[in-house]
Amino acid sequence: MLLKDKKVAIIGAGPVGLTMAKLLQQNGVDVTVYERDLNAQTRISGGTLDLHKGLGQEALKQAGLLEDYFDKALPMGRTVADSQGNILFSKTTIEEERYDNPEINRNDLRLLLLNSLKSDTVVWNSKFTNLKTDNEKWILEFENGVIATADFVIGANGGMSKARKFITPATIEYTGTLMIQGEVLCPETSCAKFNKLCNGAILMTSGKEGLLVANPKNGKVLSYNVIFKSPDEFIRNDEVFESTDGIRKYLFNRFSEWDKCYKELFEATSSFVLWPTRKISLDDQWKKERPLPITLLGDAAHIMPPFAGQGANIGLLDALILSNNLTNGKFETIEEAISDYEQKMFVYATQAQFETAVNEAAMQSPDFSFLKFYR
């Protein structure tokens, strides 16, 4: 096997990095994951993930975790409402759709993957800072002063990954959309009218002021995203976005003509996170010659906005293809296995980015409506 007696270091304990670790570990590979979070209990914010057939689900199936995913994930319907809180469309999930693409909380997915690994696989509180070579080994440096060595490095630590510079000069590009992510504790009481409008389904609302997508069943919280073209205030780093109260006031003003149930939602929000949407374009700038085996997976390779639901799924497909290449005996060298994976990834990830860009452009249109997806 290509990785016999080799040490593999994966940077990043997100879904992609942990899935890659599982797929390698079950084939007897010596793999260690380095993660900046303090420990396994560190909470991950963000919306739920839905894993698609043939993509994310296929990777979990090969990892022997698909049934565990189905046990923890929720099949969710869709509700489309207008800005005045009137329901325009409602769809429940029927039994035949139970396994299509159920939604899973990010923390639940992380624990599912962690529990499938050897207990010492992940090294926590390890923020990656630098990489260099010495005596035919990769030397990994971390902010806490720890030094590690590896024969093969896989960067799976997101769009701002510092490992990328060893492979490509590609940099982050902002796509022109701002997402304001909010979380509401105890939505049954703190924003009862809005929670009732959701009715246990993912709620989508669109208007000239922007879009709103909410999930009332994201673990123990209701999470939502408000989406619109980046305003001048944000581009100028206006202080309005520097505090929870400032963001709340901005939303009240921007959506002043929307029904009071949406304002109830903003008022009940305990925390906001700003996400200016980003991408990394894929091209032929990836270095063919590298001092030692190294590659990228997931957002570290091809971050894209979430408007086609492709990011996590494409990243898990990365892990599936690369792990198979490294363990199926079809390649003579690690470098050949990496090159084959990267050439395939360029094709399907570029297509996913294209689909995402088409959706993003449509969503920025003043006459965009979620109804077009369902009628």
Results as ranks from 00 to 15, higher is better:
Leu3Lys: 03
Arg375Leu: 13
Arg106Cys: 11
Arg248Pro: 00
Arg110Asp: 10
Asn125Tyr: 01
Glu96Asn: 13
Glu97Val: 04
Glu257Cys: 11
Tyr69Trp: 04
Asn27Ile: 00
Asn144Val: 03
Ser243Phe: 01
Leu292Gly: 03
Gly200Asn: 10
Lys196Gln: 15
Pro366Tyr: 03
Thr269Met: 07
Gly54Asn: 04
Glu96Asp: 14
Leu131Gln: 05
Leu51His: 05
Val80Thr: 04
Leu55Asn: 14
Ile139Arg: 06
Leu203Met: 04
Val122Lys: 01
Thr350Cys: 03
Leu60Tyr: 05
Leu326Ser: 02
Leu117Phe: 12
Phe255Ile: 05
Gln41Trp: 11
Asp259Ala: 14
Ile247Pro: 06
Thr79Phe: 02
Ile314Asp: 14
Glu336Ala: 14
Asp5Val: 03
Gln351Arg: 14
Lys287His: 14
Asp284Trp: 02
Leu282Tyr: 02
Asn199Pro: 03
Ile104Trp: 00
Leu66Thr: 06
Asp108Val: 01
Leu371Gln: 11
Pro75Thr: 10
Tyr99Phe: 13
Ala81Cys: 03
Ala170Gln: 13
Thr92Phe: 12
Gly56Thr: 06
Trp286His: 08
Glu173Asp: 14
Thr189Trp: 00
Thr350Trp: 09
Val240Asp: 03
Val347Pro: 02
Glu35Thr: 01
Cys186His: 15
Glu143Thr: 00
Pro305Phe: 02
Pro293Leu: 09
Thr295Arg: 05
Ile10Glu: 03
Lys260Asp: 14
Leu23Tyr: 07
Val240Ser: 12
Asn359His: 15
Ala349Asp: 06
Thr269Gly: 05
Gln25Ile: 00
Ile10Thr: 06
Lys91Tyr: 08
Thr356Asp: 12
Gly311Ile: 04
Pro291Gln: 10
Asn328Glu: 03
Ser256Met: 08
Arg236Asn: 12
Lys72Ala: 07
Arg106Gly: 09
Phe331Lys: 13
Met304Ala: 09
Ala9Leu: 06
Gly47Thr: 07
Val153Ala: 10
Asn325Trp: 05
Asp232Leu: 11
Ala352Met: 11
Ile180Ala: 00
Asp100Ala: 12
Gly210Tyr: 01
Asn195Gln: 13
Ala300Met: 11
His302Trp: 08
Gln351Cys: 07
Cys191Ser: 01
Leu211Trp: 00
Lys22Met: 05
Thr175Ala: 08
Ile104Asp: 12
Ile87Glu: 14
Gly158Ser: 04
Val273Pro: 00
Leu211Cys: 06
Glu209Gln: 14
Glu141Gln: 14
Pro15Thr: 07
His52Ile: 02
Asn237Pro: 00
Leu60Thr: 08
Thr177Lys: 04
Ile139Glu: 05
Thr177Pro: 00
Asn39His: 09
Gly176Val: 10
